[in-house]
């Protein structure tokens, strides 16, 4: 029997509102990472959570290396979900690479999302002559090499760098376990697709309001990247969080919730 898109992407719907917020997780994560922020939106919004194919509890048999060699393949997951659930006027909240995945969806279907929230986004991770992405190409190739040769060592090395917040070791452990729980080949390809994508030219094509949440001391998406994205998007709001690391929705959920709520109140004029 053919599985539905909702089964394929392990879609879960909670909340009581009319308007939908779609939460899209980042690289090496799953929908479970949103658990600290979703309770604050549950009364006013319908919340759609999902796992990209190859992540979390999605149907791993549906993973197609050719499809997911490009962020457009992941964007197609979101399009499929919105299509099956007949969603429109959606508020999209994307963490890390999902910000650019959401951008691709918005460019393809400009009327599908009414607003977007980017948490720790990066349009391009590799430094360029006029652009600071935070990484050299060689550095990223070495990181992929480590993934190939010592996956567990890689997970053990990267999780604390991404999460920061040494005072919350349980979060570092959770991220490390999330890395380890996913298929190493799929995660390696997702890493390559993520770190070698360049979506800088796409930013100016986004026509809807976007909130950019930039963390302090983020080793994956430095300040310059968040500022660059804010400059390129026509209708953008930029908020620099006190939260450190790359996962403020896990390490500093209150600050993240407040920033999102303020943005949504401003956009939809609700109190």
């Amino acid at each position: 029997m053919n599985k539905t898109i909702s089964q394929r992407n392990n879609v879960n719907i909670i909340g009581n509102g009319n308007q939908t917020i779609l939460f899209a997780h980042g690289f090496g994560c799953d929908q479970n990472m949103w658990r600290f922020v979703t309770p604050s939106f549950i009364d006013d919004y319908r919340i759609v959570l999902f796992d990209y194919v190859g992540c979390g509890q999605s149907d791993i048999n549906q993973y197609n290396p050719a499809r997911y060699s490009n962020l457009n393949g992941y964007a197609q997951d979101i399009i499929n979900i919105c299509d099956e659930l007949d969603l429109n006027d959606v508020i999209f909240v994307g963490h890390s690479v999902s910000s650019m995945i959401g951008s691709l969806v918005s460019i393809k279907f400009p009327d599908l999302f009414s607003a977007m929230v980017f948490i720790g986004p990066s349009a391009c991770y590799i430094n360029d002559t006029q652009y600071f992405g935070g990484f050299g190409k060689k550095e990223l190739l070495e990181l992929l090499d480590v993934m190939d040769n010592n996956y567990l060592g890689w997970a053990n090395f990267l999780a604390p760098i991404i999460m920061k917040n040494e005072d919350k070791p349980e979060l570092v452990k959770e991220l490390e376990e999330s890395f380890c729980a996913t298929d190493p080949i799929i995660t390696r390809q997702f890493a390559e697709t993520t770190f070698f994508s360049d979506n800088r030219k796409d930013l100016s094509r986004i026509k809807i309001p976007v909130l950019i949440l930039q963390c302090s001391d983020d080793a994956i998406a430095p300040d310059a990247v968040g500022e660059y994205i804010a400059q390129q998007i026509q209708d953008s709001s930029y908020v620099k969080l006190d939260a450190t690391g790359h996962c403020p929705h896990m390490s500093h959920p209150e600050e993240t919730i407040l920033a999102i709520t303020n943005f949504l109140n401003k956009q939809y004029q609700t109190v």
Partner: peptide
């Protein structure tokens, strides 16, 4: 008029090339 990235295989099942 603008550009968009699409999968060129529309008929072949499970074939992808963007």
């Amino acid at each position: 008029v603008d550009t968009i990235t699409e999968n060129v295989f529309t008929e072949l099942k499970d074939a992808y090339k963007y």
